[in-house]
Design a protein around this nucleic acid. Structure first.
Lengths: 133, 133
DNA sequence: TGAATGTATACTAAGTTTGTAAACGAAAGG
DNA sequence: CCTTTCGTTTACAAACTTAGTATACATTCA
């Protein structure tokens, strides 16, 4: 019932970028957030794939947010790293339920889906700008 | 961000006991829920330790709920198996934050704590009796 | 007393997470 | 144009967690 450390680091990284307001090198990000350089690079790649961050190559390259910090939510960052938010395995695409033939008929699943949606909405409502002083 | 399979099984087991309304053997529980006998025994032990289930030894022994099904929530069952509900590692007792000296000062942590409480309350508000026909 | 049941501890296999390593690709600037 | 600086990609491996099993033991009741 936890987000991974990687997702937690990703939030720190994104927050750092939100505060920076300018292109920042991976090395700088690593040193400022306490995430090892290699791991930070891995996280940045996932954030780029999710269109949350953009990168610049070359001698004076670096990273910056791809959108306004008011338009980037914690939910998005978490899902960019960990994949879809799902409090129970039965809510994921690959799950094949052994309880009932038609999984849409399962009351438990319906209940989990409702709670999951509420949690997800909550995480999507919290944006990075709320943490930028 | 998921409950474990074991917690999911525990819900099935508890639900089966809620429907049974009488002492049931581990074998019967295993066969009815599709959880292997050994694993069901392990789960039952944890449910007993959390006072959700009581057991009877001897030849005609078995298990039954320790309280009314309207008094047993999904939150309790999940915590009995997986431990305290915590969406981020930083909300757990053993966590030692590397971000700031005083973890109570961390805005992220406060935010996660609020969302976590909401999720937990939600899971505690859903009781077994709602799934007994 | 012994068959049927639950209890307790410990172990193992499989899967996931958390990183690390190495080789490659692209762009700025001299 | 070519070197330096930085980002990209793929693959690997150690550590941890989960899921499930095995073994030995304790209790009850006929």
């Amino acid at each position: 019932m936890r987000i991974t450390h990687e997702a937690d680091y990703a939030i720190r990284v994104a927050h750092y970028l939100a505060c920076a307001n300018d292109k920042v090198s991976a090395k700088q990000i690593s040193e400022s957030t306490g995430v090892t350089l290699r791991f930070a690079l891995k996280i940045l790649r996932k954030l780029i794939q999710a269109d949350l961050v953009k990168s610049f190559k070359g001698v004076s390259g670096g990273y910056m947010l791809n959108r306004s910090s008011s338009d980037i939510s914690f939910g998005e960052i978490i899902e960019a790293i960990d994949g879809p938010i799902a409090i129970n395995h039965c809510l994921t695409a690959e799950f094949d339920c052994t309880r009932v033939a038609q999984k849409s008929q399962c009351d438990f699943r319906r209940m989990f889906a409702a709670i999951n949606k509420q949690l997800r909405d909550e995480l999507y409502s919290i944006t990075l700008d709320k943490f930028v002083s």
